[in-house]
Nucleic acid binder design. Structure first.
Length: 819
RNA sequence: GCAGAGGUAGCAAAGCGGUCAAAUGCGAGGGACUCAAGAUCCCUUCCUUCAGUAGGUUCGGAGGUUCGAAUCCUCCCCUCUGCACCA
């Protein structure tokens, strides 16, 4: 077999699948649906590399498996085609991003088809097309209607390289998510926000329902959303109520100071004239600190001169301005309980403020510093003796009756800033009218289309200078108005694409609800964990919003999430062009065929682990598949045996479970073991048919070819998945197989020793227990040992056994004689 | 600092209370085939021993639970990945 043949076979079947539309699906009430989705890619100009292939392969295996199991499998693909790289390329080439994007998409599609992925291409979505993004705009208007969109001037994250603002989620450790080396700057701008916080609680709580999501992702999301239950308590400063937020209302009797954020907009309202200069100096000093050093800063504060009165004791409590209190979380002011909070303790020590213990641990412990645990209240008036949890309830209740506080839940999650000062994104459907102000574009005027004739000259958004786009009529008064030039964050596009796949050509509606409800939610969603706090939060938010609009009847987009590991280059580094370690599918495909690569990728390790490409490793997979082909071309139809049937059915059982749990690596090992048994034993054609079906999800093209060679009709990709027949599985055959392996090595060991001591032996006699006779096949042993092997039962009177070796036989360990 | 994941034979990677000296692949070595090489096939690959199927020491380190631990518990060391003052 020539090495290039695999590639040729693959082309043949890719064409056949396409011609027969093998993977296109329709809603079918009679069949159970199954929706497998891989996160769609941004079509980058550099094309698709083996890392992408790995990702899609994982989803493809699953969808092929489910399809064979008889499910009506939706497995679509599309492109997240708005984004900066295309725009930057356009600026450089003085061209249009559409050109770059569509070239890149064409390239991606070609590459994906070469991978033999079983997509229903008829459902493809491309987010840069007006027939897609008009629905982004439509959703924007719906959110606007529901009060979930607002415009606000606020401090926002600005990436100087992207020349645009970023959402909180796109700032990673103070750097831009696209530019690891670029610090994000803070700018004060008027921007559009989606009120994702409206759903904060539900997004948080519903994580509990997502049993089949990785714990890691759920934990990251919980962390990001940061739900804290506590109380808002009023302290009176200058006869005015000032709120603080605390999760520990039970420690209220331990308050010895308050700290207001140095960035608090109303800070100066409470500062006394004597302290004014000091406070101003402090605030000024803070502003001079660079953004990156902010978190390394020591806790510092300055007395404001003001005193608050304690809501329960009436005590006078000093108010400090502090650098460690966040202005935009809670109310921007906190109570200081140094006895029970590490930070407050540090602060109190520094400024010599009193420390008052009000919670005593239940078990006697020596307290040093702050005690943050739970316990029994002391020094707390009528609340003494209560446990932390009950104390919280009681104190809140008392505060509520006095109208000095209430129970509240705070979230760390902020609203989603969606404005981007860039061209290549979904235009925000808003106009600004001198008379009417901010006016949303009516639905009937959608889509607001990005101009095609526009020129790309500089770095800033060209829409700002492009009059045909800029000049609009006010939908209200029909007077002149100016169009919004900011576009939407690309994560908007990817937040609902999975729904559009269900009805991707609908030009009347965003999608047909019945269709979406049939296919969704996604049954298995495959993608990287880097989206834990980005896409995977946004699309959960969108799903809840669209449900509340009445468009869909479910609130979670994906039942199960699978995070695949990264494919690293042969050097163990992330693949990148600059490192020169990129593995391209087309290169590998030419040498081995793509099925070899696909099978190899899932053989290396469990798909959720990071794996390293190895040029030697793939040879092993190549050898295996070549062996299968040469086996078929020399195959003699024989008779099946109970032994081989047992092996087949236990393999079916295990592989089915292993694929179900994404343990592809183990499934592949089982397949190889099964095949090895075939090489040792006589099998029937039907046995081999079962093997091809098991192989098919992993090596789909080659399996089709084998299927055909063996004389089957139709696609093996659409053949039913084998069912394990438990009755045919017999443990003793597994045991026998192990014993045979052991016997082979024992025989060879004896032969070696005899060779050394007495010279060559040429015949081998094996004495087995009578009931084991059927497990030892002399043909098989002869083949493996390379010398004629005779198998006798120990009870056989006519056996050849001059040295009485038969007496050494034990169950599973036959006696051996050589001469 | 806090939280999580992990450390298994030359490498990669399964195993997660007995059936474990530990699947599988790669690499390495031996053999068969061949004039030879390659391909292919068979075998070996922790150490010792040997007409055999035995013994010894292993699964980051140190203890512990158990008749029995790579697998469970405690402490320690190392690696990775998140969150970094959210009150």
């Amino acid at each position: 077999m020539k090495e290039t043949d695999f590639a040729k076979i693959e082309k043949k079947w890719q064409k056949a699948w396409e011609d027969k539309k093998a993977f296109e699906v329709k809603e079918d009430k009679k069949k159970q649906k199954y929706y497998v989705l891989e996160m769609f890619p941004y079509p980058s100009g550099t094309g698709l590399h083996m890392g992408h292939a790995h990702n899609y392969n994982i989803g493809d295996i699953y969808s092929r498996f489910k399809r064979m199991q008889g499910f009506n499998v939706l497995h679509p693909m599309g492109f997240d085609s708005f984004g900066l790289p295309a725009e930057n390329a356009a600026i450089k080439a003085k061209s249009h991003p559409k050109k770059f994007t569509e070239e890149a998409i064409a390239n991606f599609i070609r590459q994906m088809k070469d991978l033999g992925l079983s997509y229903d291409w008829s459902r493809m979505v491309e987010t840069h097309k007006p027939d897609y993004y008009r629905w982004d705009q439509w959703i924007f208007l719906k959110m606007y209607e529901k009060g979930l969109v607002y415009r606000k001037k606020s401090p926002v994250n600005w990436c100087p390289k992207c020349n645009t603002v970023l959402a909180n989620e796109q700032v990673i450790g103070g750097k831009c998510w696209r530019h690891e080396d670029t610090n994000v700057e803070i700018k004060h701008l008027e921007q559009w926000f989606f009120k994702i916080t409206h759903y904060a609680d539900e997004i948080y709580e519903d994580l509990n329902k997502l049993d089949d999501w990785p714990e890691l992702i759920k934990r990251l999301q919980r962390n990001w959303i940061g739900k804290s239950e506590g109380a808002e308590i009023d302290f009176i400063i200058n006869k005015e109520k000032w709120k603080i937020f605390t999760t520990r209302p039970d420690t209220i009797f331990g308050v010895t100071f308050l700290v207001i954020s140095a960035q608090h907009p109303r800070l100066m309202d409470i500062v006394t004239s004597e302290q004014k200069a000091k406070v101003q100096g402090f605030v000024k000093k803070l502003h001079s600190v660079k953004e990156e050093d902010l978190d390394k800063m020591e806790k510092e504060g300055v007395f404001t001169g003001a005193y608050a009165s304690h809501p329960l004791t009436g005590e006078k409590i000093p108010v400090y301005a502090g650098n460690f209190v966040l202005a935009d979380y809670g109310s921007g002011m906190v109570m200081g309980v140094p006895a029970h909070d590490e930070r407050d303790y540090e602060f109190a020590k520094k400024y010599k403020l009193p420390i008052k213990y009000v919670v005593k641990p239940e078990k006697a412990e020596k307290i040093e510093g702050a005690y943050e645990g739970v316990g029994i209240l002391v020094n707390s008036d009528s609340f003494n003796g209560l446990q932390t949890a009950e104390a919280k309830e009681h104190i809140i209740k008392v505060l509520e009756t006095k109208k000095l506080g209430k129970k509240v839940i705070n979230f760390r999650l902020r609203d989603w800033l969606i404005s981007r000062q860039r061209f290549w994104g979904t235009p925000i459907p808003i106009v600004y009218c001198d008379k009417c102000g901010v006016v949303p574009v009516p639905e009937k005027d959608l889509p607001i289309v990005l101009p095609e004739k526009i020129e790309f000259k500089g770095v800033s958004n060209p829409l700002l200078q492009y009059k045909p786009f800029l000049e609009a009529k006010c939908p209200n008064c029909k007077g002149p108005a100016r169009r919004e030039t900011d576009t939407m964050d690309t994560f908007v596009n990817s937040s609902w694409y999975f729904l559009r796949y269900c009805d991707s050509h609908n030009d009347k509606k965003i999608f047909d609800s019945a269709k979406a409800n049939y296919w969704c939610p996604i049954d298995v969603y495959v993608g990287g964990k880097e989206h834990a706090c980005l896409h995977l939060i946004y699309f959960r938010f969108y799903t809840k919003f669209l449900r509340d609009l009445g468009l869909i009847n479910f609130g979670e987009p994906a039942r199960r999430l699978f995070n695949q590991g990264f494919l690293l280059g042969p050097d163990g580094e992330r693949m990148s062009k600059s490192k020169g370690n990129v593995i391209l599918p087309e290169v590998v495909s030419k040498k081995y065929g793509i099925d070899v690569a696909r099978l190899f990728l899932v053989s290396i390790a469990s798909p959720d682990k990071d794996i390293m490409w190895s040029d030697e490793g793939i040879d092993g997979t190549f050898r295996f598949l070549k062996r299968v082909f040469s086996y078929v071309s020399n195959m003699k139809e024989g008779k099946t045996s109970k032994k081989i049937e047992s092996k087949i059915h236990s393999t079916i059982k295990k592989i089915t479970e292993e694929i179900e749990n994404f343990k592809y690596n183990l499934a592949v090992i089982r397949l190889r073991e099964l095949f090895e048994s075939f090489e040792h034993e006589s099998i029937a054609k039907s046995d081999f048919n079962l093997f091809i079906r098991l192989l098919s999800p992993f090596a789909p093209h080659l399996s089709e070819e084998l299927w055909q060679i063996i004389g089957n009709k139709g696609f093996v990709s659409l053949a039913p998945w084998p069912e394990a027949d438990e009755k045919k599985i017999d443990e003793k055959f597994e045991q026998a197989e192990k014993s045979a392996d052991k016997t082979v090595s024992d025989i060879l060991n004896v032969l070696r020793i005899v060779d050394e001591k007495k010279g060559k032996a040429n015949k081998v006699y094996v004495y087995v227990m009578p009931f084991e006779l059927e497990y030892y096949d002399s043909n098989e042993l002869t083949k493996r040992v390379g010398k004629p092997v005779m198998v006798f039962s120990v009870s056989d009177k006519k056996k050849h056994d001059p040295q009485g070796k038969a007496s050494k036989a034990k169950p599973g360990k036959p006696g051996i004689y050589v001469e």
